[in-house]
Amino acid sequence: MTDVRPRIRLPRSASAGDSITVKTLINHDMETGQRRNSAGETIPRQIINRFTCEFNGVMVIDVAMEPAISANPYMEFEAVVPESGEFVFTWYDDNGEVYTATEAFEVS
């Protein structure tokens, strides 16, 4: 189960200009670099070190993450939706990989 699967939750509806609650969860071990394996060797650090959310190209939140963020990182925050459009969520892994999720959102 090494597949990284981002999960996003947005409210069902909102009016133009509303602030909505956005929740995100992504499966990741967030290996701190402090732990040792059974052979006593340090397990190298591998975390998601940055997370961003944009709506229609406008930055909502930009998070610099440290190893003390729990495994399977969870983020909940508020975003303004002035019009219908697309959310883009991006997670940056220490190993250089970038995970992206997009979610369309319609305002009424």
Partner: peptide, 20 residues
């Protein structure tokens, strides 16, 4: 633990997460 920067699209300066 983390640094949370709120952009122009932010609806409120708040964040909820889980920490060690």
């Amino acid at each position: 633990l983390g640094r949370f920067t709120f952009g122009p699209g932010s609806g409120a300066p708040m964040i909820a997460t889980r920490i060690r």
